[in-house]
Simulated assay, not measured.
Amino acid sequence: MNNLRLKNKSLSQEDLFNFSELFKLMKPRVMSLVIFTCAVGLLTAPDLISTKEAIIGILLVSIGAGAAGALNMWYESDLDALMTRTCLRPIPTGKINRNQALIFGVTLSIISVVALDYFTNRISAAILLLTILFYVFVYTIWLKRRTPQNIVIGGAAGAFPPVIGWTIATGSLSIEPISFFLIIFFWTPSHFWALSLYKSNDYKKANIPMLPLTNGVQSTKLNIFIYSLLMVPVIIFPYFINFVGFAFLLPALILTLYYNYLCYELYNYKKNKFDSKKAKSIFGYSILYLFLIFVFFLIDKIL
């Protein structure tokens, strides 16, 4: 009897461990950003929905994003094993096998899309399905190993969650949520290229054609600076269409101009070389920058 209890206890602990590893497949850090931006899209929409509907909608979008992350890890497990940044993920360490990851990702994809269609509306479910398919087939399978523009085009997948949040509340698309999409879309390249500079050895091991490897350091620094400058008109756009007021525009512009300054300093460093600390600071600041931009969307809505 005691042996049976110990066995059941052991199985329970093993189940919890497997659940923990499956959750890691969903890329929790990315999911947290998806939850936040989706919530901002929902909360800034002109139509109000119940708290219950909002929570269900955001939860399902985050599950869909997690499903895409799991399918990404399933397909890229061979690359993940080669990179120090990703070698401790569940599949390279053998804690989850590829078939489990594939079944988990496909199952969550179906559940999230079907449930979002049932609990909210068809357009939100359609955009979530597009997001998952785009991230898995266009970015992960098609672009990632073929072109240094992988993150530029593939970045569209990460730009959809706030748009979905908007459609959950309104049931329709309009020009306002396009501003969310543009901000994340044009933010993504400089964010990831800064990472690729100081992690270039990782990408070289995995033979991933990131910009520093295909075009060189100087070209990468220039592209980072150019994309940071493109954030200026993108930040002004929501004000131009009368979506936000000065409560958003002024602090968002200040944050953007400082981002421009950091990227210019990186670009202005010695030719064909880069300051690793500066690249890391740009990567870190870019995360804070995007978070604060979306916070100011909420503040402007409240005011």
Rank of each mutant, 00 (worst) to 15 (best):
I103W: 00
W74L: 13
I58V: 15
L59A: 11
L88Q: 13
N97V: 12
L48I: 13
I103C: 08
I96H: 00
S32F: 00
L129W: 02
T44Q: 03
F36E: 01
L82K: 15
E76F: 03
M31I: 14
L88K: 14
I110G: 00
A65K: 09
L130A: 13
L48R: 12
N121C: 08
I55L: 11
L79M: 13
S62T: 10
K95C: 11
G105W: 02
D80V: 12
R122C: 08
N97W: 10
V114F: 13
G69H: 05
I63L: 08
A70L: 07
L88Y: 08
D78P: 03
L60S: 04
E76Y: 00
A68T: 10
I58P: 03
N121F: 07
L133N: 05
N99Q: 15
S109I: 07
F134M: 03
A125F: 05
P46K: 15
E76S: 07
T107F: 01
A54L: 05
L129N: 04
R98I: 13
T131A: 11
R89Y: 01
Y118H: 10
G41S: 09
A101M: 07
K95R: 15
Y75V: 12
F104P: 01
G69V: 06
N97A: 13
T37V: 12
D47A: 10
Y118C: 04
G66F: 10
A65H: 02
D117C: 15
I58C: 06
A68P: 05
V113S: 01
L128M: 07
G66A: 12
M83K: 14
L82P: 06
A65L: 05
V114T: 14
K52S: 10
M73I: 14
A54R: 06
V30M: 14
L60P: 00
T120E: 13
Q100L: 14
T131Y: 02
T131K: 08
T131R: 08
I127D: 00
A68V: 12
T131D: 04
N72Q: 09
F36A: 04
L71R: 14
L88P: 00
V106C: 03
A115F: 02
Q100E: 13
A125V: 07
L130S: 10
L88G: 09
T93Q: 12
G105V: 12
R98Y: 02
A65R: 05
I63A: 01
P90Y: 08
D47N: 09
F137Q: 03
F36Y: 11
S77N: 15
A126D: 05
T51N: 11
F134N: 01
Y75I: 12
S112G: 02
G94L: 06
K52N: 11
S112P: 00
S50W: 04
G41P: 03
I63H: 02
I132V: 06
L60W: 04
W74Q: 13
A115T: 04
A65N: 06
F134G: 03
N72H: 14
V40A: 06
I111N: 02
I56L: 15
S112Q: 04
D47Y: 10
G64W: 05
T37F: 07
D117H: 15
T51Q: 10
M73Y: 13
N121H: 07
I35W: 05
T131H: 04
D117N: 15
L116P: 00
G41Y: 10
R89N: 01
V40T: 07
T120G: 08
A70S: 09
K95L: 13
Y75M: 10
G66T: 13
P46W: 08
